[in-house]
Amino acid sequence: MTDAAVTQTSPGEAQFGDYVALLKPRVMRLVTFTAAVGLIAAPGFVHPVIAVAAILCIAVGAGASGALNMWWDADIDRLMARTAGRPIPSGRVTGEDALAVGLTLSALSVMFLFLFGNAAAAGLLAFTIFFYAVVYTMWLKRATPQNIVIGGAAGAFPPMIGWAVATGGVSLESLLMFALIFLWTPPHFWALALFRNDDYAAAGVPMLPVVAGTRATRRQILVYALILAPAAILPAFTGIGGPLYLAVALMLNAKFVAGAWAIRNRDDAAAEADGYRVEKRFFGFSIAYLFLHFAVILLEATLRALGLGLGAWPMI
């Protein structure tokens, strides 16, 4: 290697923040929160140090699958305004580096979760990484408009993993938390796709509005909102719910269905006239919707821990 080779670096040389950006920190925040709620709401005591270490492993595992997603999707990320600034399309990180980061962190996160937690949690994390990086990113995303419907499972696993850290297994409560995120994902992303339609069309990603049209997408958002509502209310009558959860879930789901109904009753001309105001508001609310459901599960768990839970509450 010559001196020149050692000293010449590109002006956009990767900084630590670029590698962090590979891990999709915003997604990691949601994963961390839902995994923590799953762990805290689960029966049994987990030492705080073990809990923090396990949640860190889950977050890093989710981030690693994000890096693998960016490595695979670099070609279409260049074509979309929303993703063109990511580390690989912007040239700050090479695809090979992203692949190395993704594979290394995937292996380390699963291994450490096995050592810190248990085999069930580590197995679920490994499956989540595989599901997001291979099933969703490589198989589904460019092949079918149902990509979001099936791929949403990857984002739904973290509370199940948190629950498995505490209990060593799966139960009705953890499956309901999974269902909540799984059924929430399609209306959330389809609302985004309605006002980002051109982006996906340019990249050739067969999102529902691109393939089936916006009319069908608006109808599907309402259908999923109606399926989601009972699934989101049901946890109220399990070990993770209670009267507080029921009240909040009823309110949030009424608002969610009303928003979906408003989207269903609009057409593209009306949406373009007001700059997709209703769709954007629904998309923003959907984030708060999911956050508040998990926040109230956390609150119910805290009340139970303080001995303030309602003893006579009906449970399935």
Binding site: H47, I50, A53
Partner: peptide, 13 residues
């Protein structure tokens, strides 16, 4: 540090 802390907790338990 994390590995050390977890080891201490696991041994203590």
């Amino acid at each position: 540090l994390m590995i050390f802390a977890v080891t201490v907790v696991k041994l203590a338990e």
